[in-house]
């Protein structure tokens, strides 16, 4: 469960103070599929960064699975991020000098899992995401779809409770985009919370719940139409 209350994020741009988020109140239940849409500068990525504990709000309270994560230390936040959140980025963010298998292995390394256990977990993930024949290939040797599948495999290797996807199909063609979304939705169907930030209306429409943002505020949240689902 993600619970945001009065989340405000301010940025200093020269002399001016910019409100990237202004008193956001949001509840996302475990296992929900949510899309966040809005024009550039509306604050959707900032919101995603705060939900993913990459950024701290200036005001407000954020509870993740009942724990106030805003007051956690940097190390504790990193630990929560590692275990509960999986990021999928528009530009994949794969380490160029590592192979697909090694990129997928990274979260396991950070989590202190032994090399023997890592090997079997990575092999399983490669199989699951249809990357077995690309295991020893570097990102530069893979297609956009394969790179994003590698990134999704890396994001989900530790079975996070939430996947945060920022324009996950932004850098790939339509066919691969559809494939990637199908993959993310399959993960959602296993009970993982899926939050997708996108400009793409078609992509946003695939979600069960649609949030629209403008000027750092939520201007539309169709949860009101289905209040019982959240409760």
């Amino acid at each position: 469960m993600i619970y945001l209350s009065g989340i405000t994020r301010l940025f200093q741009m020269g002399d001016q103070e910019v409100r990237a988020l202004s008193g956001i109140n949001l509840k996302i239940a475990s296992g929900e599929y949510v899309s966040i849409m809005g024009p550039s500068g509306s604050g959707k990525s900032t919101l995603l960064n705060i939900i993913g504990l990459l950024d701290r709000p200036d005001l407000g309270r954020y509870e993740l699975d009942g724990i106030d994560v805003t007051s956690l230390s940097e190390i504790e936040q990193a630990c929560v991020r590692r275990k509960k959140i999986g990021f999928v980025f528009q530009s994949f963010h794969l380490v160029p000098r590592l192979t697909a298998a090694e990129n997928i292995e990274l979260p396991l390394i950070l989590n202190g899992i032994s090399p023997t256990n890592r090997k079997s977990i990575v092999e399983e993930a490669l199989l699951k995401f249809d990357l077995s024949n690309r295991a020893q290939h570097r990102p530069a040797e893979m297609s956009g779809g394969q790179r994003q599948r590698t990134a999704i495999a890396r994001a989900t290797i530790l079975r996070p409770t939430a996947i945060l996807a920022d324009e996950p199909t932004g850098n790939i063609d339509h066919r691969n985009g559809t494939e990637v979304m199908a993959l993310l939705e399959r993960l959602h169907h296993t009970g993982t919370t899926l939050i997708v930030v996108t400009h793409d209306r078609e992509l946003g429409a695939r979600a069960d719940r649609h949030i629209a943002m403008r000027d750092g505020e939520i201007v539309m949240d169709d949860i009101s139409e289905r209040p019982n689902e959240i409760e």
């Binding site: 991020r81 590692r82 963010h93």
Partner: peptide
């Protein structure tokens, strides 16, 4: 820099 950001995003603390 981008790689460092990625490592942080997937849960690497600053110490790592």
């Amino acid at each position: 820099t981008s790689e460092i950001g990625l490592l942080k995003a997937i849960g690497a603390p600053s110490a790592d």
